[in-house]
């Protein structure tokens, strides 16, 4: 077959990711961010490494040394996850690292709960679902994992979720927002029905939507819709609501990029 000379390739394409790669390795970047406390450090590091067993060992050691299990959730587990989230946001580590860290963190939280009668306080509650008729749920699973990893309590309604089930969950759980994902154009129409039924009941809360066929134009057609282009936008939208309120227009100004 024909082939290009090595020196000709740069004129045809540019590997911007190779050209702009950061000098620092992920491990080095993480090391700079870990808390220095000798009880907390190994837990945060184990979260970054996604090692569930090491997380539990670190928690046991910290509790034996007198640390409060509930306080450890914020001081160690969430702090470790904060390192992971920052490195992901900065483009230093990739999604599978975050997912493995999230698994480890959730195991850690469950362990802490077994060590006390106190109940940890989540940052807020969020209802997640995949549109009725749609069984493609990997996007929703990523959203749910990232939200949990950021300290939110997730009520996961699963895939192919009937409209009325979403309404019932919102009435019961009173979340700070709902998320909906869909891969197909015909199933995402359910988002509009959810929007209408919520408004009929006088419920007004942000409805963050995204996924394969979902686009900003469609989500903008219903009053509660806020479009999220990436799974990680769900966390940013939730953080925005916690910090700045749930005004839909303000959320759209912030997150509608097109």
């Amino acid at each position: 077959m024909l082939d290009l000379k090595l020196e000709d390739i740069d004129g045809i394409l540019v590997r911007y990711n190779v050209a702009l790669e950061k000098e620092m390795t992920p491990d080095e970047a993480a090391e700079e961010l870990y808390p220095k406390d000798e009880q907390i450090y190994p837990i945060a590091k184990a979260i970054y490494e996604g090692e569930e067993d090491d997380v539990i060992d670190g928690l046991k050691a910290a509790i034996d040394a007198g640390k409060d299990p509930i306080a450890l959730i914020n001081e160690a587990l969430m702090t470790g996850m904060g390192v992971v989230s920052k490195l992901y946001d900065d483009g230093i580590i990739f999604l599978p690292n975050v997912m493995m860290s999230a698994d480890a963190m959730l195991d850690g939280i469950e362990f802490c709960k077994t060590q006390t009668t106190e109940v940890p306080e989540p940052r807020g509650k969020i209802v997640c679902h995949v549109a009725e008729g749609d069984v493609h749920d990997i996007g929703k699973n990523i959203v749910a994992a990232l939200l949990r990893a950021s300290g939110y309590e997730v009520v996961d309604l699963g895939r192919d979720c009937p409209v009325d089930e979403v309404i019932e969950a919102v009435e019961k759980e009173k979340p700070l927002m709902v998320t909906g994902t869909a891969l197909m154009t015909t199933t995402m129409y359910a988002f509009k029905e959810i929007n209408d039924k919520l408004l009929e009941k006088g419920i007004k809360l942000p409805f963050a939507c995204g996924g394969g066929a979902v686009n900003q134009d469609f989500v903008s057609q219903y009053d509660l819709g806020v479009y999220g282009e990436e799974a990680s936008d769900a966390v940013k939208i939730a953080n925005f609501i916690v910090g700045g309120g749930d005004d839909i227009e303000k959320l759209r100004e912030e997150f509608h990029k097109h």
Partner: peptide
């Protein structure tokens, strides 16, 4: 294709 979409463009950071 799920893998390809998660991997995305050159600058995306979701999958190698």
């Amino acid at each position: 294709n799920t893998a390809m979409f998660i991997a995305g463009g050159l600058l995306d950071k979701n999958l190698a």
